[in-house]
Design a protein around this nucleic acid. Structure first.
Length: 643
RNA sequence: GGACCGGUAGCUCAGCUGGAUAGAGCAGCUGCCUUCUAAGCAGCAGGCCAUUGGUUCGAAUCCAAUCCGGUUCACCA
């Protein structure tokens, strides 16, 4: 039980006893006491005046007295300022906490709660390498999974690989046309990048072929089209030429995009890609063989990237194996009357009663759409694991999709429905705006990683420290710092907010960064080396007296909060809460470490004023190192012994 | 147009289940390395918490409206 919970429950007892009033634990507002006042935690008593029938100050005094008298082990003293009851927690309480946790490497972790949860994340397309946006997804998914584990859940990390579809056919087609048999081996290019290069080639060619078609449309030359398409294009072109539309930039832009899309679909190369997709679906052996080969290259590339990033999965699903699954569900839905069929044979669900639209689930030709696949996959996952919760780490542009997905599953009475949770995160943008593959502003994941590690290497060399380490050890350290910096940078922001990725800030190793927290850890380890201790377990039986200096107490208090922080992070699904906490803890340790009065370190350990103080501080920094390491682990970040 | 999300220091972000004088980091300016790692510490400066109204003893936090930015509303995924 945490201090805050202790205070809550004591306050409830006090109020019951003093005012004969039943009050819920959650209704007691407790804050960390502001630094300018005496005490560590503060109870807000304004709300109690309703039944105390006293002024806030008197109410505070009364409750304070009660707590000191009846809970002396917890509350050693108090002061009241307006309606704020500032409590001084008994040092014995802190010492007791320190004593039991100073060498506990898992202090905040909760026991298993018997619940199972799946976290699906990463879920890449196999036509190009990972980029910055994927990194946020991967780090978030990994971290949330770790946080849930620490909170007592059994976690299945899942990856749903989008390994089929028109986008892969594009890469395949361009490879056939231009590669002359090139492979990752023959070119020395990482597989996912090689395949991505041909995707870009395809897009370039597509653009070239679409341009004359667009130009003709704009000149009212519709020779490329016939039938229903012709009608549509004529209509769009006529609209676009209207003067009032031309003045409306937004509308004109949208029309232009529509025309562009039609033209792109009309290109020869796009037609070929579509034919290839049909061949793939028909199981054409040649197409399937190329598909397997190129996907294989991509998987090798991804494997390398995942490994370097420290990302892993317990279960991998492939869309090529799941994309047909939703059809059974649709059949069930039709039987139950939840879905209906239109004249053209397409199948729909009517969500207008829920304030949404009608949603298509099967095309007229019987093929399924994205939603249908997701419905089927949701059922499959549930059959595989029977988890209570299924978390989808997917960008916020798909909020609507997941809202609908959950709703349809509910209407179909699928048991999987209840657990569906969309962990929606905001886009990563560059200072100049959104990343655009067409404009080549996409930040490649491998490149960025390399840059971060290089920066870490430069900074380490520039510091002139660690010259006795081997090249291997140094390389390992650069990875820890570089990757840690990258992960911390992407995780320190609330997931649901979109974030700006400023490359200059991201490689910084000062301030609110991963390196800052890692550095605090390395400093602690250096103290242990200085004192000549590698193991603190000999302090197990040591019992300190009850005097504590301000930052000694502050550090114990912060460490003690870790359990509550973990609860918050789990409830809010936010690694950012952990990152902020870890930084705050590291910052406080640094103050503790560096405070100096008249040339003497206040909290010196190697040259402590007494053996007693030395042992106490060793316990404190040992606990702090554990908590820092644990927090960072929840973010997927390692901490070094030296840096 | 409907729905959803956001707007806090020059910049990037905390704080949002209502509580004290709104906090960090970066950038700027002062100091601090013969003493456990200066990737650090101490300090200065920087704010109409988008606007307006409401609820309340008390609002950055809750409610309503407005303004600005984003996403989405495909027989794409």
């Amino acid at each position: 039980m945490s201090v805050v919970q202790h205070i809550r429950s004591a306050a409830v007892t006090a109020i019951k006893s003093l005012y004969n009033q039943d009050i819920a634990l959650a209704d007691i507002a407790i804050n960390v006491t502001k630094p300018e006042f005496e005490g560590e935690y503060t109870i807000v008593v304004f709300t109690f005046t309703k039944f105390s029938r006293q002024k806030p100050e008197e109410t505070g005094q009364t409750i304070g007295n009660y707590l000191v008298t009846n809970f002396p082990d917890l509350v050693a003293g108090f002061n009241v300022v307006k309606g704020f009851l500032n409590l001084s927690i008994n040092n014995a309480y802190w010492i007791q906490y320190l004593q039991t946790n100073f060498n506990n490497a898992h202090s905040g972790r909760k026991p298993a709660n018997g619940k199972k949860v799946m976290v699906e994340y990463s879920s890449p397309n196999t036509n190009k390498p990972l980029h910055l946006g994927h990194l946020r997804n991967n780090f978030l998914g990994y971290s949330i999974a770790e946080i849930l584990k620490a909170a007592g859940y059994e976690v299945i990390k899942a990856n749903l690989v989008n390994d089929r579809g028109i986008h892969i056919c594009k890469s395949m087609l361009a490879w056939q046309l231009f590669a002359h048999g090139d492979t990752p081996e023959s070119t020395g290019i990482k597989g996912d990048h090689l395949v991505g290069d041909y995707y870009v080639k395809f897009e370039t060619l597509l653009k070239e072929q679409a341009e004359p078609i667009i130009a003709r449309i704009l000149e009212n030359d519709f020779r490329d089209f016939g039938g229903a398409e012709l009608e549509k294009v004529e209509k769009l072109a006529a609209l676009l030429h209207k003067p009032e539309i031309q003045q409306d930039e937004e509308k004109a832009g949208k029309l232009h995009d529509d025309i562009k899309e039609i033209a792109r679909n009309k290109t020869e190369i796009m037609q070929q890609a579509k034919i290839m997709l049909q061949q793939w679906e028909a199981g054409n052996p040649e197409v399937r063989a190329l598909w397997s080969t190129m996907n294989g290259w991509v998987y090798d590339g991804f494997e390398t990237t995942y490994k370097r990033l420290g990302i892993d999965f317990d279960k991998v699903y492939y869309e090529s194996e799941t994309y047909l699954l939703g059809k059974d569900l649709v059949e069930d839905g039709l039987r139950k009357g939840v879905l209906f069929r239109k004249e053209d044979n397409s199948v729909w669900i009517d969500l207008t009663a829920d304030g949404l639209d009608e949603k298509l689930l099967l095309r007229g030709d019987g093929t399924s759409v994205y939603m249908t696949q997701d419905l089927g996959t949701a059922r499959l996952k549930y059959q595989d694991f029977q988890m209570q919760q299924s978390i989808y780490v997917v960008a916020d542009e798909q909020n609507y999709h997941f809202k609908v997905l959950k709703l349809i599953l509910e209407k179909l009475e699928e048991p999987a429905a209840e657990g569906v949770y969309h962990l929606s995160y905001g886009m990563v943008e560059l200072p100049a705006g959104r990343m655009k593959s067409r404009e080549g502003t996409v930040v490649d994941a491998d490149d960025l990683t390399e840059e971060m590690v290089n920066t870490a290497a430069e900074q380490t060399k520039a510091s002139g420290k660690l010259q006795d380490l081997s090249e291997e050890e140094l390389q390992r350290l650069y990875e820890i710092i570089g990757l840690g910096g990258m992960k911390f940078f992407l995780l320190r922001v609330d997931p649901k907010k979109r974030m700006i990725f400023n490359p200059k800030d991201s490689i910084d190793l000062n301030g609110f960064t991963g390196a800052f927290v890692q550095y605090a850890h390395a400093r602690i380890k250096s103290i242990f080396r200085e004192v000549g201790i590698t193991d603190v377990s000999h302090l197990d039986t040591y019992r300190h007296n009850d005097s504590l200096l301000p930052l000694e107490k502050e550090l114990i208090k912060l460490n003690e909060q870790f359990g509550e922080i973990l609860d918050d992070a789990q409830r809010e699904m936010s690694p950012a809460i952990i990152a902020n906490y870890a930084f705050h803890l590291a910052q406080t340790f640094n103050s503790f470490y560096a405070e100096k009065v008249e040339g003497h370190y206040t909290y010196s350990i190697a040259r402590a004023e007494s053996e007693d103080k030395q042992k106490l501080r060793l316990q404190i920094i040992s606990m702090t190192a554990h908590t820092i390491a644990q927090s960072m682990k929840l973010l997927g970040i390692d901490v070094p012994e030296r840096m």
